[in-house]
Design a protein around this nucleic acid. Structure first.
Lengths: 229, 229
DNA sequence: TGCTGTATGATGGTATACCAACTGATGGCA
DNA sequence: TGCCATCAGTTGGTATACCATCATACAGCA
């Protein structure tokens, strides 16, 4: 079996095309992240087959994947639905995010080049633009772009994978914190603290700013869940 | 659809039985963790069907789940195999573990009752017994038991899920660090530091002892990977 | 009008079939 | 003896069938 990952003098044929299953996983994940399905919505197999134009095998395998990632939960005798974490799990998810993002910010402060810093600043500007002109969906997407860049600069691809999965579980909470009055102003100040600390290479300050930011949104989210119950 | 999670005066019928798929996921995960399959081994569907006595649908869905958890990786045109991370990923996995376990140790120091501390001490004794009388597999299992207890005391079920997945990816590295000469003696001292710090309620010391322990095994693992390449 | 029984449709679980691509073995020819 | 072509077996991808369980709607009866 040829080693597709090794470099063999540059002549290797690229045969990597995505299976229907892989594309289905991506489509469903995107649909969940973009609120085409909301937390708690049932994901009925035959209905998804019709929408996506694939067989139940493909849908079922995609659901298994998303289930393991935390996007979907399956209750016995009830079938799959978009994941909706309880308040205890949500709190823990925010705590872990805070740890991982703070560590990434610390490492990014150490490793960022001036070009990196400029890119982070631009990513933050994109978040503000999304708050001003876009939808909640746009803000989530821009925020994801910022953090993806942060983790990439920090060289922490594994942590980024975990954070993506964690964020999946609290997707709708994130959407709700974004839509709070004045969240735009506070978020701007908080992200700016992170970018500025990284710009001056202050890992400790970057970690603190990042940690404080996640604590802030965690508290907003917990307050909302308390109200909703 | 009845709400299976709500309490309705205690009369509710418990119908939660596991599907073939759920049991297959567990069996395969256990087999990987117990080195019945080794890192890099191909997981051929029809062969697994014969071994497990189930259809390809059940096996494929289980593989999808384990793939998303990080136990299995699928290369195009090559099919599924037990995951084998490279040195960069392995380093990152250890770093994340260090963060999450340190945080769990800190919280456990705050929350542990005397009975909890006794259980942790017993779990540590079980690790030492496994080093003395058991196999590497026994040591891994006992160590998992210790950490499961630690995270439970700390109230961190989500972090524990993540750590389990992370450990899956470095399962064989863990087995290799365990089998080093004198690892038993060092491990005992390191775990004892953790238990003692928790016993006296010193969160900071517990976090440090836990962090140092993971740093130690990370360095052992990195040294081995360097040698192997 | 309300309750109960029955029937039908919906849904997830599981098995099997078919196909395409790939790998390895074998035979023939130069 | 080595190389090439062909064939057979292996394997993953995908589709579909069947079944059991559950939910909902409807009809009949008191």
């Amino acid at each position: 079996m040829p080693d597709l990952l090794a470099d063999h003098g540059g002549l290797r044929i690229d045969r990597s095309t995505k299976t229907l299953r892989e594309r289905t996983v991506e489509r469903l994940r995107d649909a969940i992240l973009n609120f085409q399905f909301k937390a708690g919505d049932r994901l009925i197999e035959r209905s998804l087959c019709e929408k996506l134009g694939v067989s139940r095998t493909v849908v079922r395998e995609a659901l298994r994947h998303l289930e393991a990632e935390g996007f979907v939960e399956t209750l016995p005798q009830q079938g799959p639905a978009v994941a909706k974490p309880d308040i205890g799990q949500a709190a823990q998810v925010y705590e872990i995010r805070a740890l991982l993002e703070a560590e990434a910010a610390r490492a990014a402060a150490r490793m960022a080049t001036p070009a990196d810093v400029a890119r982070l600043a631009a990513a933050n500007t994109a978040i503000q633009a999304a708050f001003a002109d876009g939808t909640g969906r746009d803000v989530l997407r821009a925020t994801t772009g910022f953090y993806e860049l942060l983790f990439t600069i920090a060289g922490k691809s594994v942590a980024w994978q975990l954070v993506q999965g964690l964020n999946a579980r609290i997707n709708y909470l994130r959407a709700m914190t974004i839509s709070r009055p004045n969240r735009s102003v506070d978020a701007n100040a908080e992200m700016l603290r992170i970018v500025e600390a990284i710009a001056r290479g202050d890992g400790r300050a970057a970690a603190k700013a990042s940690f404080d930011h996640v604590e802030k949104v965690k508290n907003l989210a917990m307050a909302m869940l308390d109200t909703a119950q």
